[in-house]
Design a protein around this nucleic acid. Sequence first.
DNA 1: ATTATTATTTAGATTTGTCTAAATAATATT
DNA 2: AATATTATTTAGACAAATCTAAATAATAAT
Lengths: 219, 219
Amino acid sequence: MNLSIAEENHIKSIYKLQEGDAVVTTNALAYELETKPASVTDMAKKLKEKKLIEYEKYKGITLSADGRKAALQIVRRHRLWECFLVDKLSFSWEEVHELAEELEHVRSEKLTNRLSEFLGNPVIDPHGDPIPDANGKLAKPRPQTSLDQANAKRLVVTAVSDQSTALLAFLNAKGIKLGTQLEIVAHYEYDNSIEIKVKGQPAITISEQVAKNIMVRPV
Amino acid sequence: MNLSIAEENHIKSIYKLQEGDAVVTTNALAYELETKPASVTDMAKKLKEKKLIEYEKYKGITLSADGRKAALQIVRRHRLWECFLVDKLSFSWEEVHELAEELEHVRSEKLTNRLSEFLGNPVIDPHGDPIPDANGKLAKPRPQTSLDQANAKRLVVTAVSDQSTALLAFLNAKGIKLGTQLEIVAHYEYDNSIEIKVKGQPAITISEQVAKNIMVRPV
DNA sequence: ATTATTATTTAGATTTGTCTAAATAATATT
DNA sequence: AATATTATTTAGACAAATCTAAATAATAAT
């Protein structure tokens, strides 16, 4: 099955929004892809025809087994290229998303597998997201919570869920990246902001909104 | 100036066929791009509009200064990716062309320059072709002739001009690659075939057509 | 249970890149 | 020079991916 770039992007976004099982809505998908609902409806008909999604008028979209398989291939390529850009070309983690967005569409299994091998078959990407293996299997994610719900004091950053450049740049400026160890200094009930400290740096205060998007696990 | 993939491919092929100064013909370009002359005419109008080529009806096509600059960027990306695939991912030189054909369209200067640096700023690609630097400057090619016109006995392979997979696979099977040292054993005037010997291997006979596509210089 | 609101789909248009078939220009041949 | 051949362009069509505006369905509010 040969997918166009537009088809791949739709599949990938459906996978992202589905998050396991949920039905994906036309509007949500249009918003995610920065396109219009009418365009999503058009594409949904096409992808249904190709048996990559389940879709009935007005009933929303879910991936079929084949669609899920395709999505995992795309996600695998995306995340491997992100590793390459960060590990080998010294990009910082907030820069790589757009570039990987283009590189992911080079659909060669041989290339993908060689790249993976070259990188040492990594299982998580620079944002902490798991990388599907050649068969589409995802490493089961280690237990993690968002920073605003953590109860341990000493934590490691394992992922950042919001992909916005603004947040990533902010964290970068504060010296926070994957694997950074944090200590929770205080939790202000007033606005649910959290004061944290990275070893060797002055303590900083983080809003609830930011804390919700930083994933951590106890060290 | 943002070029589509189709536009980039046309620019690149015009650059390739132009070879310095020659005017490129509609038919030749269509053949090179595996498309139809009518499509080339359409695209020529568009590229002229964008001032990337000089073009008058029935008079053929040449690159403008801007077009040449664009072409060199594309060629740079293509050849750097070929180096990456061969040097880092252990592809053999005859496999990399198609993959580089896709990777070359990721238009990020930062990525290109970082990639170049990562590879040690190479100046020739795995086929022996020079890689333009970030300013579009080409290293001046070392003196070379095609194997059928060489007069020295001991030679080094410096490039292969035909990009066909068939030829590359043939050479690969014979253990001939960039940098391979050859010795001319005999030259048969009858059909202009040439008998050559690679150190440690039995002598082989090569047709004139193949010899024309192997570039060499005296060792 | 009507009505209002929001979500989704349809119909029809647009852009890009391509094609075929016919027309025209350039070149080669007699 | 007239004619035949080849190269190139034009005209009109088509598929993919998108859009806007209008129509319809689903859901929420009174």
